[in-house]
Design a protein around this nucleic acid. Structure first.
Lengths: 179, 179
DNA sequence: TTGGCATAGTGAGGTGCCTCACTATAGGGA
DNA sequence: TCCCTATAGTGAGGCACCTCACTATGCCAA
């Protein structure tokens, strides 16, 4: 799942007011009349690029421990859950992926001995993923380091900027989920 | 490539200062001492969620025209390029994906008759993807609508908010690319 | 009680994404 | 000229992601 790729393109520059922009992206966005559309596309493009780089970095980190970003997230959720086990459907919802995808992720985790599938005594349709001792050991080994790395990515952000980034992102989430 | 999934979870709420936050995400992030780390994780989580929903929506839209988000982006770049053709490597860099991935994407586009691989007369190693008339027709049919849809996602954003979102995203990009 | 619908998970099949290994061509020295 | 290294693309293999179809179970209403 790693990515190292090293895309050299996409120079990030500063405009006259001190705001960053991506030169290649701006060039790529045809100047459509109002430029309002262009501003939106630039912002969304920047957000998507940031998300991809975050994902790549997270995957590369997890891969050094024999995990992937998704598998690490599943283990984290299981380890934090009271009974150390959750139905696949709940895990899928928590990671915002389709149920079928969680089947694939748990397949790999189970093959690697990090989780075990068990029947749900309360619902015959449901399958619970239960974290194994090996899974617990693995996730505890990397958790602290993983958190520190994530936090370091935003080391030059003020508290207000973090709030603003979250707020603007969730405005988009609302627009995309609503309606 | 579509996604309709309809994740119902992840309620987006407003805090006392009017800033949005995701209740489930906040609950999921263990209160680590300083809470600075928690704030970062919340912001990054929100950004990644927004990016995923944007991608899903884009894919679902493209799928209605027999494309995917990635394939539409490749066609757009080819159609905008002066000679209507670009080497696979340049396309990969433009989309921030590994070269191998572009081979896969062009395979599908070529199978569908939307691009054609041609030898690069100037470099025997290079392979150019050239958009076909069918590819041009396809991308021109959806371009205007696609732009409008993307723009609508941020319809309640002020111009300043768009700039701020771009700026904060690119700060992350710099941190992730630098070093 | 039983039929009918909703829900949980998986098999089949396909794209997007990656790494690693390999081929082939380019290009700069010695 | 001849290597030696760098670059461009692809084959092989593998995970993450999806839709669609199907099974099995749960559940409600008649």
């Amino acid at each position: 799942m790693p990515t190292q790729v090293a895309i050299t393109h996409g120079e990030v520059l500063e405009d006259s007011r001190g705001y960053l922009y991506d030169a290649a992206m701006r060039r790529a966005i045809i100047e459509m009349g109002g430029s309002r559309s262009a501003d939106v596309l630039e912002a969304l493009g920047a957000l998507r690029l940031a998300a991809k780089l975050i994902h790549d970095a997270s995957d590369r980190f997890a891969e050094r421990h024999g995990l992937s970003d998704s598998r690490a997230r599943v283990l984290t959720r299981l380890d934090r859950s009271p009974k150390r086990r959750l139905p696949l459907g709940a895990l899928a919802e928590g990671l915002s992926v389709a149920p079928r995808t969680m089947t694939d992720i748990v397949d790999v985790l189970e093959r690697d001995g990090l989780v075990k599938r068990i029947a749900d005594p309360a619902d015959g349709r449901s399958v619970l993923a239960e974290i194994t001792p090996a899974g617990k050991a693995k996730i505890n080994t990397i958790r602290r380091d993983a958190t520190a790395r994530q936090a370091a990515v935003a080391k030059d952000f003020t508290a207000d900027q973090l709030v603003e980034l979250r707020h603007l992102s969730l405005m988009l989430v609302q627009n995309l989920r609503g309606r």
